[in-house]
Amino acid sequence: MTDPVIELRGVTRRYDEGPPALHDVSLTVAAGESVAVLGPSGSGKSTLLNLVAGLDRPSEGTVTVAGTRVETLGEAASARFRRAHVGLVFQFFNLLDDLTVLENVLLPAHLAGAPKRGARENATRLLDSLGIARHADAYPGRLSGGERQRVAVARSLINRPALLLADEPTGALDTASGEEVRRLLTDLHAGGQTIVLVTHDLRLAQACATRTIGMRDGRVESDR
């Protein structure tokens, strides 16, 4: 039996004297699962994602991702860990407009010190598999929202991460582009990618997730 990709034990996150943003959360995510985290604004969804990504640290409890206690890592080590093990996809793409599509996708590989030739071959394969190879030399501003999100997904996968985290990946997209991203995430999961996505999009959760975690007031309210 393989170890879980994500394991949270008794995780609480406080930011001030008010109620905690996350309160005593324990959960595991196995390799190959696709998990949707749902809940109203302020329920703790993004806090949970940030803790798993190592972008934030818990006030109490432990966060283990791909066998590493991420809450113990310093800033530089946390950044190296994300580059090697975690792919991040955001609502507003976070692409660099002065770099081409191919250059955007290659950036995490270069930062990780990957051999240039192998990284370029991998990036080209990713762009082809995601249906955007023809845009390799274009700049992000010339692409549709759905195409830009595909570039963001390619960038997140360039270092072959154990885990893909997506924060409202269809939130800034029109209906057609959102459907493109739904199909893409479904295909990635079918190929074995472990995915955790935070979303308000029930259609996305139903299409892509094999498990749904409902959150409210910083607690896990349901897990099915």
Rank of each mutant, 00 (worst) to 15 (best):
E33N: 10
V35E: 03
A36G: 11
L38I: 15
P40M: 10
S41T: 15
G42A: 09
S46P: 09
T47C: 07
N50C: 09
V52Y: 01
A53N: 04
A53D: 00
A53P: 04
G54A: 09
D56I: 09
D56V: 11
D56Q: 12
R57P: 00
P58A: 06
S59A: 14
E60T: 15
T62K: 13
T62I: 13
V63I: 09
T68L: 07
T68E: 14
R69Y: 06
V70D: 01
E71L: 12
E71N: 14
E71T: 12
T72A: 15
T72S: 14
T72H: 14
A77W: 02
R80G: 12
F81C: 03
F81Y: 10
F81I: 04
R83G: 15
R83L: 15
A84D: 11
A84Q: 14
G87K: 02
G87Q: 01
Q91K: 10
N94I: 02
L96H: 12
D97M: 09
D98P: 01
L99Q: 13
L99T: 06
T100V: 05
L102W: 01
L102D: 01
E103R: 07
E103P: 05
V105M: 08
V105T: 14
V105K: 02
A109R: 01
H110L: 12
H110P: 00
L111G: 11
A112E: 06
G113W: 15
G113P: 12
K116S: 14
R117S: 14
G118R: 14
G118H: 13
A119N: 05
E121G: 06
N122I: 00
L126M: 12
L127E: 01
D128W: 07
D128K: 13
G131Y: 11
H135D: 04
A136M: 06
A136P: 03
A136Y: 02
D137P: 01
A138V: 04
A138D: 09
Y139G: 01
P140R: 04
P140Q: 08
R142Q: 14
L143S: 05
G145N: 01
G145Y: 00
E147M: 11
E147K: 11
R148W: 11
R150D: 07
R150K: 14
V151A: 03
V151D: 01
A152M: 11
A152C: 08
A152R: 03
A152F: 06
A154W: 09
L157E: 10
I158L: 12
I158Q: 00
N159C: 05
R160L: 08
P161N: 06
A162P: 04
A162L: 11
L163F: 06
L165A: 11
L165M: 08
L165E: 10
E168F: 05
G171N: 00
L173V: 07
L173C: 07
D174W: 10
T175V: 10
A176C: 02
A176G: 06
